[in-house]
Amino acid sequence: MSTSIPQAGIKASEPLRPEPATVLEVIAETANIKTFRIAFDDPALAESFSFLPGQIGQLSILGAGESTFAISSAPSQKGRFDFSVMKTGVVTSAIHELSAGDRIAVRAPMGCAFPTDDWKGKNVVLVGGGIGMAPLRSLLFYLLDHRDDYGELTLVYGARTPEDLCFASDRRDWEGRADLDFAATIDTACTGWDGCVGLVPSVVEEKAPSPENAVAVTCGPPIMIRYALQSLDKMGFREERVYTTLERRMKCGIGLCGRCNLGPKYVCTDGPVFSLAELRELPDEL
């Protein structure tokens, strides 16, 4: 957590005004999740735009409204960025109508990133579920891009069924890598799936990555996070070495509109990334 100041992509002079951008590509991930590859229309902004894994942005369909999402692409990818969006409400339904070439309006990046500099030399365990994989995808890309800075990398990513798993082509790459211990898991066995079966926390316990010199990061449905945190605790991961990224209803994204606070901290500016130790200090109002 740190104090946030205006960054590229959000005009300090007009932090609530989004920038026009164009959808370059739409990738259907599951029945209700699509990944939107986007570039800012302003060439200078497109060029200067940068972010770190864990940061968020606001997508607007002007007329329908604005919502907050994690940036899901590799920070090293210049000139464009991805948002993976689950269709659930008015704004996300409007976003799901978009095709390549369509206009969207974007405010990004916002919030604090994962403290990846502090993790250098450590092993990193990523625990993701469902659409919660979106920020972890960006984080994993970052760690792989800086592979020599980190020790062993483990990823357990789960969904209810094989059809609910996102990022198929990334998963094929991850499976083929010798420098990443990756398991995709589904809740219950089904025909055509010869991979791992079981709830994400149990698979993490089976894999049993060592808590020695390691950090763990989890993001997913609240119920998964709760059990994953219990598992990590049981395995010996200390609270200050366990991170998650939170979601709240947000409007302004810059700590002014009031609603996303956890006690005195605002998820939009003080988060969305928090260590478990930081969360323990805050009122339990998740």
Binding site: E14, R17, P18, E19, P20, T22, D41, D42, I61, L62, G63, A64, A94, E97, S99, A100, G101, D102, R103, A105
Partner: peptide
């Protein structure tokens, strides 16, 4: 809103945001 935005206008002119 919800319609086809990408109908041939040059980039940057299809959506104009004014302070």
């Amino acid at each position: 809103l919800g319609g086809a935005f990408g109908n041939g206008a040059p980039a940057g002119e299809q959506l104009v945001i004014e302070p």
